[in-house]
Amino acid sequence: MLNKTSPVYKFGFQILAIVGALIFTTVVMLLAKAPPLEAYRLIVIGSVGSVGKISDVIVAWIPLLLATSGLLLTFAAGLWNIGIEGQITLGAIFTTLALRLLQDSALSPALIIIIGFLSGILGGMIWASLTGLLKIYGGVNEIFGGLGLNFVATALTIWLIFGPWKRPGVGSMSGTVPFDNLLWLPQVEGLRMSWWSLGIGLIGIVVVFLILQGTYFGLRLKAVGKNGRAAFIIGIPTGKYMMSAFFICGAFAGLAGATQVLAVYHRLIPSISSGYGFLGLMVAMLINYQALWAAPVALFFAALNIGSIQLPIVLKLDSTLSGVLQGALVLFVLMMDGVRRRLTAKKVN
């Protein structure tokens, strides 16, 4: 008989979960009277069918990876940083602000870009710290605080786009006036991706992995997350550690927002965070908060997102189909994990 604790056994259940999620999504499509096989084919072609597509996937991967990286820290501290969407948005706003202020100055473009990044990080941190302060000193659950601040961040974006930062003439949903080419993060010839932002994303996840794996800070963060009361008695200042988790996660979120402005849209648009914060929450749950798996799973999710862009055009299907598949994956993996635990616990007499 197969050993019930072996990795092979565990892997088998994960495969089952993926199959389950695919079946579920297929049923949803059948109910919507859409051809499932054709849809899957389009998703694959739409994501890895050409160099351009692959580069697009990477463009989506970077902010998602940054968001996931930050969230791994807040999750480690036992915090549900739902407010990450707002933190990404504020990062984008702060970057846009810095660029708008400096674009006509004599500074070199490289310096302006760097200041843009730093300013974005600052924006994300400020927004995250609000959730943190509300939680630690105001007793407001971070989920509610974060949710509220997300709305405020969206409202702020819209106000800026249609108010103070509106295009000459009338403001439009397409966002603020694009920045000059010189202020774009250098891209790969003919593609949308940039080696620079790819580097930032990869360094980000490696840093988080090292923090969680090998530092006193990471271990204390986990202690706070797993048993705050005991951690406090052992002598860990729990409030400070939670606050640091928010700060660092906010910095990552701000960085993601800054990349969206500097490397992707080159302006502020209404939904600049593109839902990468929420998607990051899903990735973190799917990988069971293990930093090691963040990069590949985030890449897969990014591929699903990009791959389904074509669906509305070709099949008249909504592109949120990728969302259905992603959500189903998370649910099925969590569910199969529960099933496996039950089975392992129940050994036959």
Binding site: Y216, F217, N227
Partner: peptide, 24 residues
């Protein structure tokens, strides 16, 4: 209040010691 379920015995000893450096 005393121990942290989910962490190992070693990790508990690390937590109760003074920090030396950044990496464990």
């Amino acid at each position: 209040e005393g121990l942290i379920p989910g962490l190992s015995v070693t990790e508990h000893f690390i937590l109760s010691e003074d920090q030396s450096g950044f990496f464990i």
